[in-house]
Design a binder for these strands. Structure first.
Lengths: 208, 208
DNA sequence: TCAGCTACCAAACGATTGTTCACACACTTG
DNA sequence: CAAGTGTGTGAACAATCGTTTGGTAGCTGA
């Protein structure tokens, strides 16, 4: 028996310089598949190919590996997350330093709650590159450092902290991650409202 | 070609009433396999069979399903976690209510750090049974309720809280879970020392 | 017109998985 | 000793997967 029907029936072939077009279509399909599945282990080459409507082999023209596809996805999604946090920060009154911390964390949580599959993947693989020096690198640590800077700003603006700025950032970030992870695990109480309140409580706690 | 060599060469067959023996051997092998893998998606029927040294089909004499095997594992591990937390609590001075909270959380984190595969599985599937009433049930919620009781005891003993007792328990539990999850994701900084300090900081924050 | 390149695909290979089914052993009971 | 039951096996089925190989269809530049 042949290998099974893996492809959708019809599809207009890409034109000459447009090979890149399929690459982003593949990434988009992978992204959507990941959203539907909610877990990265179902993110298969063949599934993505089905989503785009192409043959599985065609993916190998654009990505050498399944791992390369995943890396491409990760890069794209981390960029999206950073951008969301940044615009949230920019839409605040620059003087309201604590409000800016809250806004960034709310953006972070909103992304995480809205895209469980992406988020899980990002936190499993987002801290690659162990970091030559003491601290690990990776896109995830950039997020944390952004938060550290925000808390430092708060301290400089006169908002007294009960722990050092870096520690406060760690506590808030780790707590937010914990809540997100629980929301993802538990089918009930998926309200984004709860998580906002939780993060606000957490932020309030680190200030005197 | 035959289906491959799935079994270890020799093995003494169980005697009459000892069918149950293989059942626990299977659970033990599954537990160890889960420890080695660190993730539940590699926990296969055939892998467990290889671990015990039996044929894959033999597992179906003791578990109807792969899902049933996983349920069996979960039950066993949740019992272990509860017992660890309880004995940690009992080894404290009963008067030192805050110390008892700390001890229970340290036990929780120690288990989680030592058994990443089990912990992940327990948090993915530990909140089944959506709960007929308002709150979800499941063995995980029992742990949280234990913690709520501990914090309530603190409040009654005169330790003033900055948030209600239930909220304090949530914050500490969620924060601990977040730290555990991050330790599992990040290869570096796996120190159990860090997590103890983190939990202690968190507990300190919820008191005035 | 026609070689050459881009873009893609059908088919297959080898591996793994959960699950089933008929069978064989060992021991107990009649 | 014979029947029956507990206990485990060998072989196979159907499904899925990642990846490779050898193409083909169509556009492009000479």
């Amino acid at each position: 028996m042949p290998d099974e029907v893996d492809i959708a029936p019809q599809r207009t072939r890409n034109r000459w310089g447009e090979g890149e077009r399929l690459r982003v279509e593949i990434l988009d399909a992978a992204s959507q598949l990941l959203s539907e599945l909610g877990a990265a282990d179902g993110l298969t080459i063949r599934g993505v190919a089905r989503g785009v409507g192409i043959a599985p082999a065609s993916i190998y023209r654009h990505f050498t590996d399944r791992a390369a596809l995943v890396r491409g996805l990760l890069e794209h999604e981390f960029a999206r997350l950073r951008s969301l946090m940044l615009t949230a920060d920019e839409h605040c009154d620059p003087e309201d330093v604590v409000g800016r911390v809250r806004a960034q964390m709310h953006a972070y949580c909103a992304f995480a709650v809205a895209h469980p599959g992406h988020y899980r993947l990002m936190l499993s693989n987002g801290a690659s590159r162990p970091g030559p020096e003491e601290r690990p690198e990776g896109p995830l640590m950039e997020v944390v450092e952004t938060l550290v800077a925000a808390f430092t700003r708060c301290a400089e603006a006169g908002h007294e902290l009960r722990v050092p700025g870096r520690r406060a950032a760690e506590i808030v970030f780790v707590g937010a991650h914990g809540h997100v992870a629980l929301v993802h695990s538990l089918p009930s109480r998926t309200g984004a409202q709860n998580i906002k309140a939780f993060v606000d409580d957490l932020i309030a706690l680190v200030f005197v």
